[in-house]
């Protein structure tokens, strides 16, 4: 069970209340027509599938509806860092 404190509404949320958004920091090429087909395909499909610290997007779906970024250990589900999209940080205070 993944439990994350939403950095916006400040509630501890169980994964059933959250929506997983996949890997974070996937940069959309700008402008898209400036990149090769290979680069565009990599943007679309290639993910790191990290074992360990993984940067990912989550949404407080059943709560405030805000998206945020999390650094999570994909082995232990330990949450190391929670980041807002506006760049402000918050660290999990519980563990």
């Amino acid at each position: 069970m993944i439990v994350i404190r939403c950095p916006y509404c400040d509630e501890l949320r169980h994964e059933e209340e959250l929506e997983y958004g996949g890997e974070a920091e996937i940069v959309r090429p700008a402008p898209p027509e400036s990149v090769s087909d290979e680069e565009w395909a990599a943007y679309l499909y290639m993910r790191t599938n990290t074992k360990g610290h993984h940067h990912e997007q989550w949404c407080c779906r059943a709560g405030c509806g805000q998206w945020f970024k999390v650094v999570r250990d994909t082995v232990s589900h330990e949450v190391h860092e929670i980041l807002r999209f506006d760049g402000t940080f918050s660290h999990p205070t519980e563990e």
């Binding site: 090429p29 402008p31 898209p32 027509e33 990149v35 087909d37 565009w40 395909a41 679309l44």
Partner: peptide, 12 residues
């Protein structure tokens, strides 16, 4: 103008 998915329409 660009829109979501446009670039993919020029893939093979």
């Amino acid at each position: 103008a660009d829109f979501i998915g446009k670039r993919s329409l020029s893939l093979a």
